[in-house]
Amino acid sequence: MVTGTGLLAAGLNLAPTPPPRPGSTAAPDRSVSPGTALSRSVPVRVEIPAISVRAEVVPVAADADGRLEVPPLDRPTVAGWYRPGASPGEAGNAVIVGHVDSLRGPAVFFNLGRLRAGDTIRVTRSDGEVVTFAVDGVGSYPKDRFPTDRVYGGGAAARLRLITCGGRFDLRQGDYLDNIVVFASRVR
């Protein structure tokens, strides 16, 4: 009974650290010269010094319901590259997704909401190129109003989008209600 009472108390007041929220709404993408786009190459690692992220990247696509796939929850330190889209450094928007947390606690993109304009993101590709991006802005969006066009749309410039969960965790749905999206443009 003592254990039960303890667990009840824990259930009511467990893990008091929700994921950080972005400071302001996402700024529009910076106007950048398209420069010389790289050819296609699979990304293998993402590094974000400002929030101490160094993570392996694996390819993902979509699940049977057409929703963006994410790496399995039992590998919370791994990020997923959206394979049907551009690769980092190619013309267009490359998309990398990572969990905000797992059942055990914070995961690879837990601190994504802390990023600010100008922060650096480096992506290493399988061809050995390291592509550097600068953050243009960070936004929080309800999942039913996800900015599909800004995330997956593209142009001549090489851009990067990082996605994770945010906002309130809905117990009934077993999912967070929002997505945090980082918008970044290639600088090197």
Partner: peptide
């Protein structure tokens, strides 16, 4: 893909899984 990404387990959030 449709909508956003299911990228969290709720383990860090108050009221989480």
């Amino acid at each position: 893909p449709i909508g956003g990404a299911p990228a969290g387990g709720g383990g860090s959030s108050a009221g989480g899984t």
